[in-house]
Amino acid sequence: MKKAVKPEILFFLLFSVLVSSLSQAAEFTFTAIPDQDTARLEQRFSKVADYLTDALGFEVRYVPVKSYAASVQAFKNNQVQMAWFGGLSGVQARLAVPGSVAVAQGMEDVRFRSYLIAHHSTDLQKSKQFPMEIVGKTFTFGSKGSTSGRLMPEYFIREKLGKSPEELFTRVGFSGDHSKTIALVQSGSYQIGAVNFKVWQKELEAGRIDPKKVTVIWETPEYPDYNWTVRGSVDQTYGAGTIEKIQQALLAIDDKALLAAFPRQKFIAADNSMYQPILDTGRAIGIFR
């Protein structure tokens, strides 16, 4: 016998449809920190989005952001479900969204480094020893939220010289990204700069660096850096095992053109605990409270 549908149930159904359409954008989106070559972010990462769409069986879209902070905020507010973070932004994001996990990193990210670079007028040469002569010069970091352009260089400078950059240098600037750091030191606007070693190598190969004007003077010790981080809620929204599938898809990338977007040789598995040193360093210099 047919039963009339109760109006409450209808109302409930309608309401839940409404709520679900509001609360979850059906498509899966990811972003990436704009650390270099920002003019071609869209080109670089839309290829990655296409690859993931094929590999995962649902629509994946890349959302560009303009700053490290914006990438963290977007992740926090579920405007993206996954991101290619730096070491520091990754830790910030995972702390802000409990349950989120680092799933993969580049092979190079296990042993990442930064370079200190100097304008030729400083007469500083490359050395194994920490260049104490940088005290009293003008200095630029990259972005304020960068691991290789700010956090780790600042940490090592503090460790070697026992003071904060503001006390050591006549001026401390933040160029915004690694490419601009190189340009500013090359033009002598700042005498010393701290830069991501991968970006330096890439710019050098591309012929955008004049070795007579700017040189590497010191290499930091190694530290863990970039990572793919996924929100923990992804498994509930897109089905159990999705995070696992995403991880497998990332590790399986072997297309050179795709990897060049990062630029990395290969992705390997990662987990949250690998980034403990970043958290400790961040705490030591006050980025984490």
């Binding site: 700053s67 902070a69 963290v72 910030q92 630029t140 972005s143 304020k144 600037g173 933040f174 160029s175």
Partner: peptide, 21 residues
């Protein structure tokens, strides 16, 4: 105008945002 390394109020606001504070 944070790029110039002048610590105006805006510089500190920008720093706080980038630290997620």
């Amino acid at each position: 105008l944070g790029i110039l390394g002048i610590t105006t109020l805006g510089f500190y606001i920008d720093s706080a945002i980038s630290r997620d504070h």
